[in-house]
C-alpha cells in the first residue's frame, strides 16, 4: 500500500514538474510582459500544487505533511499578490500591453522600441 502511494506521489511530482517546465516554455515564448504573467501563474498554481500533493502522498500523515500544506498555502496566498503588484506597477507606470494580433504588431514594435527603454 505504502509502495503504491509513493509511486503515485512520484508520478504527481513528475506531472507537476512537467507543468512547471511548460510554464517556463510559455514565459520564453509569449510575446509581451502581460501574457508572460499568465504562463508564470501555471507554475505557481498547477505545478506547485501537484508537486506538493505528490510529496504529501510520499510523506504520509505526519508533521511533514502539515509543513507541505503550509508551503502550499503560502505559495497560494503570496503569488497572486506578487503577480498583481507586478502587473499593477507595470500598468501604472505606462508599460503598454500589446493587445491582440501579435504576429503583425510585434515585429514593428520591436524595431520602434530599443531594448530597455520601457522602464518607468
Amino acid at each position: 500500500m505504502g509502495d503504491v502511494l509513493s509511486w503515485a506521489g512520484g508520478g504527481l511530482v513528475i506531472v507537476g514538474v512537467a507543468l512547471s517546465v511548460l510554464g517556463a516554455v510559455g514565459v520564453l515564448r509569449f510575446p509581451d510582459f502581460y501574457t508572460r504573467i499568465h504562463a508564470a501563474s501555471i507554475t505557481d498554481t498547477g505545478g506547485a500544487s501537484l508537486v506538493l500533493l505528490g510529496l504529501c502522498l510520499i510523506a504520509g500523515l505526519s508533521l511533514v505533511t502539515l509543513k507541505l500544506v503550509f508551503v502550499w498555502v503560502f505559495v497560494m496566498l503570496t503569488t497572486p499578490v506578487a503577480a498583481n503588484a507586478l502587473a499593477n506597477a507595470a500598468f501604472s507606470s505606462g508599460h503598454k500591453p500589446r493587445i491582440g494580433a501579435f504576429q503583425i504588431v510585434r515585429t514593428d514594435e520591436r524595431r520602434k522600441t530599443p531594448r530597455g527603454t520601457d522602464q518607468p
Partner: peptide, 17 residues
C-alpha cells in the same frame, strides 16, 4: 528581459521553482 518587469517576473517565478 526586455523590460525590468519581465526580469522581475522571471526572478519571482524562479523563486517559486
Amino acid at each position: 528581459g526586455p523590460s525590468h518587469y519581465d526580469r522581475i517576473l522571471a526572478v519571482n517565478s524562479f523563486g517559486t521553482k
